[in-house]
Amino acid sequence: MARVVVDVMLKPEILDPQGRAVMGAFTRLGVGGVSDIRQGKRFEITIDGDPTDAQLADLHRMAEELLSNPVIETYELRVEP
């Protein structure tokens, strides 16, 4: 079994009100020295055996078409050891 992780983040130029709200909580809780917080999504995909090139191509397609919206988000896909 292998695990493929896809991290999805809003593009830097897209406003992230949720991240900003979390940042506000940091400030209220007295945690200083933090200049920015951005919130994203993490997907953990478990597959049988080691991923083949065809499977990885499918997962990249899913990451781009379904898991992220390329208009506002970027994704990073990696196979965990």
Partner: peptide, 17 residues
Amino acid sequence: LCEAHLLPGALTRNDHL
């Protein structure tokens, strides 16, 4: 419609949450 790329852009969380 935006997710289907029939229209450009996207709708995101209200800025005031």
